[in-house]
Design a protein around this nucleic acid. Structure first.
Length: 594
DNA sequence: GCCGTTTTCGGCCCGACTGTTTTCAGTCG
């Protein structure tokens, strides 16, 4: 059966090819296909199983698209799409990946010069025949040549992982803050929405001074390899790695409308602008204003603009137009956690782990500095070949922790471990030794290639273990480097509800694991989460903020995050899980000591 | 192509920058 995302990708392709046929990415038909695709992507029911009339009930899907979907599901293809593919073969479509080449230009190049691939375009540039076309010139030809070169290093398709983009963005913001008159400089776009991969880095700057001076400084930054656009309000550059960085500079009283505009998503903005029009207003990056009189209704803060439209402020990570605007209107946005709500960290390594960098004493002090009320110390357990701690080492650490506890009357120290989930779902040590720990995180560190059924089984088995309070970095993915393990997410969530085992939201920017899709799937379930930094040094305790953003992305209610709970409530919950399934524990003890 | 208590036709989000032009089209975000 075709999945929703497979169906959506057919519609996206239909949109792309229709743009070539209609000569514009903004053609209404193109947008209609995109709307339908987005709606199907976000649908919770399997669209392949829906009747034509049920399909038209989906937002953005009308009779024509509904019948195309049925055609695809029943016959495996869409006649209209096949026709378009014939007219616009992949090599030709590739042309529009060249920055500066849109649908109009691509078609014009083909009609006038017979250009039907990037290779053809290169030849036409070499022959200097493009500059002869009406509306083109030598300058355009040169720019196209440069754009083609760029395709090799970056191109429109590559989306850098968030960790890479965040680093660049914060660097740029920091540098621009030193320009005279600059009051604020912050990352926007998909970075602020906390997508796991980033199209472009967007930076918004507020300046009371000379805007041109900001642009001047921007294009001179060390990260800049090439300047794409250069203006007082708006500039764009490419980094050496091909990352595009966009800069907008606005006046202080335009921050709110500019931040909304620049944060997106595109679909969210279009929806907001439509709401503005319904009220006789228009929304741009400069202001929400009356159409007739141009009188400004709101612009200073995001809250004001949303409020004027009858909406609660929408957290950036939710702005995808996938129910966020309706929830903001109806007052049903989730009550999200913020960093200030965190009362503990429950995945922390010390130098006892082979890859840990700071001493136990320093990690504990750093947690105390953050005013935490509980701390789970979770060094790697013995099954992890290089980094794991032996029983003897673990017991010695426990003694040290007990001694340290006296110095921290406010904060409860839990001696835990990051256990390794074996092939069959078992973890390190034996049940007796495990029962000596006060907290346990279990994670997959091996056998990433098992099939879906086996991976699901091993996770579920680990969740049932009374020594396991939470599953660490659920999928084991490294964003942009390594895919996560295959999992039956619903089965895992069922087990989480049944066992009371929490699912970690790992804070490392290259993990952000569990992924947002998993968190969203758990929205209407009684699944608990724990935000864990997986810190390997004191500085990484600050990564908690990334886990908070990730929880927002997944619409996770604060009440479901166990480390926002009071110390008493948290400790009660930990104890319950470890006491529960005592029969299971007895059975395991018998197994170990027949 | 979709949509609708101002509608089944006539709308459909907004603006900057570039290169080519004397007022605009194309592209992009």
């Amino acid at each position: 059966m075709l999945s929703n995302s497979e169906i959506a990708s057919h519609l996206y392709e239909l949109a792309r090819l229709s743009a070539l046929a209609d000569g514009s990415n903004n053609a209404f038909r193109v947008r209609a296909y995109e709307d339908a695709a987005r709606s199907i992507d976000g649908a919770t029911e399997p669209v392949a199983e829906m009747s034509e009339s049920a399909l038209t009930g989906l937002k953005g899907v009308g009779k024509s698209t509904a019948s195309k979907i049925r055609e695809l599901v029943e016959g495996g293809s869409i006649a209209k799409l096949e026709e378009l593919r014939k007219e616009f073969p992949p090599d030709f479509v590739e042309l529009t990946r060249v920055p500066g080449v849109g649908p109009k230009t691509a078609v014009q190049l083909r009609d006038a010069l017979g250009v039907s691939s990037v290779e053809d375009l290169k030849a036409a540039i070499a022959a200097e025949s493009i500059r002869e076309l009406p509306g083109f010139g030598a300058r355009t030809e040169e720019n196209l040549a440069r754009s083609i070169e760029r395709l090799g290093i970056g191109g429109k398709e590559r989306r850098p992982p968030i960790i890479e983009a965040m680093r660049t963005a914060l660097e740029v913001c920091q540098a621009l803050m030193t320009v005279d008159g600059v009051q604020r400089a912050e990352p926007m776009g998909s970075l602020r929405r906390f997508r796991e991969t980033i199209g472009d880095v967007d930076v918004l700057v507020v300046s009371t001074g000379d805007h041109q001076a900001v642009a001047d400084r921007f294009v001179e930054l060390p990260v800049v390899n090439e300047v794409v656009d250069y203006g007082a309000r708006k500039s764009a550059v490419l980094s050496a790695s091909g990352m595009r960085i966009d800069l907008r500079v606005v006046e202080p009283d335009q921050w709110g409308s500019a931040a909304i505009y620049f944060t997106g998503s595109k679909a969210h903005n279009i929806h907001l602008r439509q709401m503005a029009l319904d009220r006789g207003w228009t929304l741009s990056e400069y202001a929400l204003a009356e159409i007739d009189t141009e009188k400004v209704i709101a612009s200073k803060t995001e809250e004001e603009v949303y409020a004027a439209l009858g909406l609660a402020w929408v957290p950036p990570e939710l702005r995808e137009d996938s129910g966020d605007i309706e929830a903001a209107r109806d007052g049903t946005l989730p009550a999200l956690a913020e960093v200030k709500h965190l009362r503990g960290d429950l995945h922390v390594h010390t130098s006892l782990s082979g890859d840990g960098r700071d001493r136990l004493e320093d990690m504990v002090q750093a947690a105390a500095d953050r005013k935490y009320l509980y701390l789970g110390i979770t060094d790697h357990a013995e099954d992890l070949a290089i980094n794991g701690a032996s029983r003897r080492q673990m017991l010695a650490q426990r003694t040290k922790i007990e001694a340290l506890q006296g110095q921290y009357p406010e904060m409860r120290l839990l001696h835990g471990a990051e256990l390794n989930i074996g092939r069959d779902g078992s973890v390190d040590y034996d049940a007796d030794f495990l029962s000596g720990f006060g907290w346990g995180v279990a994670s997959v560190h091996s056998l990433f290639d098992l099939d879906r059924a086996k991976q699901t089984e091993r996770i579920v088995t680990a969740m049932r273990d009374p020594a396991v309070n939470a599953i660490g970095h659920l999928t084991g993915r490294r964003i942009g480097k390594r895919p996560g393990i295959e999992l039956d997410v619903d089965a895992v969530l069922d087990a989480a509800e049944e066992t009371g085992c929490a699912i970690e939201i790992n804070c490392h920017l290259d993990r952000l694991d569990a992924p947002a899709e998993v968190l969203l799937r758990a929205r209407d379930r009684d699944v608990l989460f724990v935000i864990g930094t997986d810190a390997h040094d004191v500085g990484e305790l600050r990564n908690a903020v990334w886990g908070i953003h990730q929880s927002h992305r997944g619409w996770v209610e604060r009440s479901k995050i166990v480390n926002t709970w009071t110390q008493a409530k948290f400790l009660k919950w930990v104890g319950e899980k470890r006491m529960a399934n005592s029969e299971w524990q007895v059975a395991r003890l018998r197994e170990a000591n027949p």
